[in-house]
Deep mutational scan, measured.
Amino acid sequence: MAAAAAAGAGPEMVRGQVFDVGPRYTNLSYIGEGAYGMVCSAYDNVNKVRVAIKKISPFEHQTYCQRTLREIKILLRFRHENIIGINDIIRAPTIEQMKDVYIVQDLMETDLYKLLKTQHLSNDHICYFLYQILRGLKYIHSANVLHRDLKPSNLLLNTTCDLKICDFGLARVADPDHDHTGFLTEYVATRWYRAPEIMLNSKGYTKSIDIWSVGCILAEMLSNRPIFPGKHYLDQLNHILGILGSPSQEDLNCIINLKARNYLLSLPHKNKVPWNRLFPNADSKALDLLDKMLTFNPHKRIEVEQALAHPYLEQYYDPSDEPIAEAPFKFDMELDDLPKEKLKELIFEETARFQPGYRS
């Protein structure tokens, strides 16, 4: 834990890192770190609560700039109880001085990944967590956004079992017609939660990839272990087919990539493993919904509104309290091709509203 900075004593240090967030945020305490930044909790002297502050230093890398800009653009436009918001952003007053960006968010005690390492969940908890994931996802999908990296560590939890989806750095506007060349190379989302079509096709992607990830998360809540822990690309596919069985001819016809289709045709026939054999203690309604989410063919996979209306979630289902976005989200430009200098300018502009004396 960093010592509390005395008023006016300059930035606090946390594990050798400068955290320049005073005077409003003090009493910093280390939480963890990701690929390009550290997260601390801090005391907000204005709202009198502890908050989470993520320090991001992305400006050396085009990919990190892209992810940072995506996350900020999306989260500043989203407003939903099951999606983490941005409360404040701290950065230098000029673009030349801006080396880091500090993002202030609600402090959540833990995440689903940490929880599943230590606790076996009751059916009631599984049901409530799944409902909140789908409630947040309904809003995301209504904005025409794909999260693309749903996994237990991106689901934040607090002691009252509130759940918030975080990390929109890989999110995209849904565009089933656009052929994202190089899709697989830039697709760094965790393999275990990846839909089979991501490994088999490169053309376009749809909201059904997020539903697949939610199915993987439900299976993990039922058993405290990942359902498809593939060691590499082909191993991942083999794990999936080992449980779902061989795809039907109709399902194979959806695979545009001939090499991928021929690979699947070359494999020995596998039978589907019954879900109640894998999860003998699970609620039968939970397994019915799991089956509809972990469907090989993305066109037959359940959609988020149908999933919310499934009998497993009937005690929570309330369409009048499951809000959607006001308007579909649009990125003005494809960020993939922009140089990091341009992305830095866009991050600077996007964060201006939090600067003292800002006038829109």
Rank of each mutant, 00 (worst) to 15 (best):
Y233A: 07
L115P: 03
Q249I: 05
F354S: 13
T94Q: 08
N276Q: 09
D288N: 14
N238G: 04
H269D: 09
E186F: 03
D44A: 09
T159Y: 12
G242I: 02
F129Y: 14
P268H: 14
A92D: 11
Q249S: 02
I211E: 13
N45Q: 09
L150E: 08
A92I: 00
P23M: 03
T94V: 12
R24P: 02
A352Q: 13
Q62L: 14
I240D: 02
I56M: 06
R24K: 07
L137N: 11
L146W: 03
W212I: 13
L278F: 05
E81Q: 09
V273E: 15
D106L: 00
Q105P: 04
T160H: 06
D106R: 03
E12L: 14
Y113E: 07
Y205Q: 11
L121V: 08
K292E: 06
N297S: 12
C127G: 08
P229S: 13
A307I: 00
K270T: 05
I227V: 08
E303Y: 02
Q315D: 09
R353Q: 06
S284K: 07
I347W: 09
E71Y: 00
F168D: 01
F59K: 06
N271K: 12
F59R: 09
H299F: 07
E109H: 07
L155Y: 04
K99H: 08
A327L: 03
V39Y: 06
R91V: 07
D179K: 07
K99M: 14
L241S: 13
S208Y: 15
Y187L: 05
F78D: 10
N123S: 11
I72C: 03
F59H: 00
D162S: 01
L218R: 04
L290D: 11
Y128V: 08
L237T: 06
I126A: 06
L287D: 06
F129Q: 08
N154T: 14
Q105E: 11
A35W: 05
T118E: 11
I209N: 14
G136K: 04
Q315L: 14
K330M: 15
Y113T: 05
M108R: 04
K207M: 15
K259G: 03
R359L: 09
A282Q: 04
F129D: 05
A325F: 02
E326R: 08
R353W: 04
D175A: 15
P280Y: 11
D88L: 01
L343N: 10
Y316G: 02
V188W: 09
P176F: 07
E326L: 06
N276P: 06
L264G: 05
V188H: 05
G37S: 13
L264W: 01
L115A: 05
S153C: 14
G22I: 09
K272L: 06
T295P: 15
F168P: 01
I243H: 05
Q315K: 14
A189T: 14
L146E: 07
I302C: 06
S266A: 03
I95M: 06
L237A: 10
D318E: 14
Y205R: 12
W275F: 05
Y131S: 07
I31W: 06
Y205H: 06
K203L: 13
I31Q: 02
R24S: 14
K203M: 12
E326V: 14
L134S: 13
L116C: 08
K330W: 00
N144W: 08
Y317D: 05
R359T: 09
M333I: 15
D149A: 15
Q315N: 08
I56K: 06
G245V: 14
P196N: 07
F354N: 11
E109G: 03
H125V: 09
F129I: 15
V46H: 02
A7D: 12
E349A: 00
P196R: 13
Y128C: 11
Q132N: 09
I83S: 01
F129R: 05
I227E: 03
A174W: 03
G182I: 13
H61S: 02
R50S: 15
A3W: 14
I165K: 07
L222Q: 14
R50L: 10
N201E: 12
L130V: 05
P339F: 03
Y316N: 15
P229V: 06
R24C: 12
M199T: 01
L244Q: 13
N144V: 07
N224D: 09
E341C: 03
Y187R: 03
K203N: 14
D44V: 10
N281L: 08
I56R: 08
G16H: 10
S57D: 01
I126Y: 06
L69S: 07
D179S: 03
W212P: 11
E197M: 07
V145D: 01
F78L: 15
A4K: 03
D124T: 05
E186N: 02
F168V: 02
Q97Y: 08
I133A: 02
K151G: 05
P226L: 11
L150T: 04
L75Q: 15
A307Y: 00
W275M: 14
A7R: 13
N27Q: 04
H120G: 04
H178R: 13
L278W: 04
P229D: 03
V18C: 02
Q132S: 12
E341H: 04
F228N: 01
K231Q: 04
G34L: 04
N238D: 00
Y187E: 06
N123Y: 15
L163Q: 15
E71T: 00
Y193V: 13
Q315A: 08
P311K: 05
L244F: 04
N45F: 04
V145L: 13
L28F: 11
P328T: 15
L241C: 06
V188T: 02
H180G: 09
C166A: 03
M13H: 13
P176M: 06
A309P: 04
E334S: 02
P323K: 03
I56N: 15
E350M: 04
V46C: 07
R172L: 15
C161N: 02
A195H: 00
F279A: 00
N144Y: 15
H310Y: 07
D235C: 04
V14M: 11
L28H: 03
E71H: 00
G182Q: 10
D111V: 14
K151H: 03
T295I: 03
R67A: 03
Y139H: 05
I227S: 10
D149Y: 15
P328M: 07
K330V: 02
L294P: 06
F329Q: 08
R172S: 07
D177Q: 10
I89K: 03
P323I: 00
K330E: 08
F331R: 01
D332C: 01
D251H: 01
V104S: 04
M98Y: 10
N87I: 15
A325I: 04
G204T: 08
D175L: 12
F354C: 06
A282V: 04
A286D: 10
D149C: 07
M108I: 15
H239P: 11
D179H: 09
P229L: 10
T190R: 12
N201V: 08
K342C: 03
D167S: 02
T206S: 15
Q97W: 03
R135C: 13
I165E: 08
Q306Y: 01
F183C: 10
Y43Q: 03
A6C: 03
L289Q: 14
Y43W: 06
P328E: 04
S360F: 08
T295M: 07
F296H: 07
K292H: 06
E220H: 08
E220P: 09
I256D: 08
Y263V: 11
R172I: 08
S320I: 07
N154S: 13
P319R: 09
A5E: 10
P268R: 03
R191G: 08
I90A: 01
D318S: 03
Y25E: 05
Q132I: 09
R70E: 11
D179F: 06
S153G: 02
M98N: 05
A7M: 06
V39T: 02
F329L: 15
N238V: 09
Q119W: 03
I198K: 08
L134H: 02
K270Y: 03
P247Q: 09
L218S: 14
A9I: 03
F329T: 01
T206Y: 10
Y317T: 05
H147G: 11
N47Q: 12
K342W: 02
V304Y: 02
N47I: 15
Q236D: 07
Y193E: 11
N271A: 01
I165S: 04
K259L: 08
A171I: 02
I84Q: 03
E186Q: 04
E109F: 04
K285N: 15
K164Y: 10
K99Q: 11
F296C: 09
G34Q: 00
N262M: 03
D283F: 05
F19C: 13
I133H: 02
N276M: 01
P196G: 09
T181P: 08
T206H: 11
N262I: 15
Y358R: 11
R91F: 03
I74K: 06
L76D: 01
E186I: 04
T181H: 08
D111F: 02
K270C: 06
D177S: 08
C127W: 05
G8I: 08
R70S: 14
K54A: 06
G16A: 06
K272I: 15
Q355K: 15
H178Y: 11
Y128W: 06
S202H: 10
K99D: 07
K270N: 15
L146K: 06
P226V: 06
K55R: 13
N47Y: 15
E345V: 14
I126P: 06
A6K: 04
Y139D: 08
R135Q: 03
